[in-house]
Amino acid sequence: MQKITPYLWFNGQAEEAAAHYVSIFKNAQVVDVVRMGPDGPVLTVTFEIDGQRFIALNGGPQFTFTEAVSLYISCADQAEVDELWERLSEGGEKGQCGWLKDRYGLSWQVVPDALGELMSDPDPEKAGRVGQAMMAMTKIDIQGLRDAYDGVA
């Protein structure tokens, strides 16, 4: 079992949110649903995405998500970026630099592995161009990053 598990507070949508997230990611499943009594309302839903466990709580309206905490997704290629960006942002808000809020207000960063590779180049000019290109993007575009890296206008 993992030592740290993100515990996500929802306003009555824990089961719906867990099902939504599990439907988006290929290697995902609902692990457990805890009800308040045998026929009572759902209290928590434990779900897993690529081996990472999360617990969704039906906590009520007292607290909401902010951008101060986000879930970072490492994407292998543009196809994965495109799919996750569209599915997670549906009903939510698309932001800058690969950030979005989903329909529940939870912030995600959908980031291709290529971004880190290009930004860690020892040539500060190349890395700087990549950073500037990323700052101008909403969804991260790998080819746009590569063009900036190469100095292509």
Score class of each variant (00 low, 15 high):
81 V>A: 06
92 G>S: 05
129 R>F: 00
143 Q>R: 10
30 V>M: 07
100 L>K: 03
103 R>G: 03
14 A>T: 07
40 G>F: 05
25 F>R: 10
91 G>T: 00
62 Q>H: 14
101 K>M: 03
137 M>K: 02
60 G>C: 04
17 A>K: 02
37 G>A: 11
107 S>A: 12
42 V>L: 00
13 Q>E: 14
68 A>P: 03
65 F>Q: 01
12 G>R: 08
106 L>T: 13
27 N>A: 12
135 M>N: 07
22 V>L: 05
78 Q>V: 05
45 V>D: 08
144 G>V: 06
30 V>L: 04
44 T>I: 11
128 G>E: 14
149 Y>W: 06
139 K>Y: 04
4 I>M: 15
123 D>T: 13
40 G>K: 07
6 P>A: 14
59 G>D: 12
65 F>I: 02
118 L>Y: 01
90 E>I: 04
51 G>V: 11
54 F>L: 09
28 A>Y: 08
124 P>S: 13
150 D>T: 07
14 A>E: 02
83 E>G: 06
118 L>N: 01
122 P>F: 09
144 G>Q: 08
126 K>Q: 10
1 M>K: 15
85 W>D: 00
140 I>G: 01
37 G>V: 07
39 D>L: 10
111 V>W: 00
95 G>P: 01
106 L>I: 15
60 G>N: 06
58 N>D: 13
51 G>T: 11
115 L>P: 00
122 P>E: 13
49 I>T: 02
151 G>H: 07
112 P>K: 11
31 V>T: 14
62 Q>D: 14
147 D>K: 07
67 E>I: 10
96 Q>W: 09
37 G>S: 12
105 G>A: 07
97 C>Q: 09
104 Y>H: 06
129 R>P: 01
51 G>Y: 11
48 E>Y: 05
14 A>N: 05
108 W>K: 09
34 V>L: 15
61 P>T: 04
97 C>N: 04
61 P>V: 05
91 G>F: 02
138 T>N: 11
47 F>K: 01
84 L>N: 01
70 S>M: 13
26 K>T: 12
20 H>S: 12
46 T>N: 10
151 G>M: 09
122 P>C: 06
60 G>D: 03
73 I>Y: 08
140 I>S: 01
47 F>W: 04
153 A>F: 00
8 L>N: 06
152 V>L: 11
39 D>E: 15
60 G>T: 02
114 A>G: 04
10 F>I: 10
120 S>G: 14
96 Q>K: 12
136 A>H: 03
25 F>C: 12
67 E>F: 12
107 S>K: 00
87 R>F: 03
149 Y>R: 01
20 H>M: 14
121 D>T: 07
13 Q>R: 14
25 F>I: 10
20 H>F: 14
115 L>S: 01
14 A>H: 02
67 E>H: 13
71 L>P: 02
112 P>I: 12
71 L>Q: 10
75 C>H: 01
117 E>V: 15
113 D>K: 13
99 W>P: 03
40 G>P: 04
77 D>A: 05
70 S>V: 12
147 D>E: 08
37 G>T: 05
20 H>L: 09
44 T>H: 07
46 T>F: 10
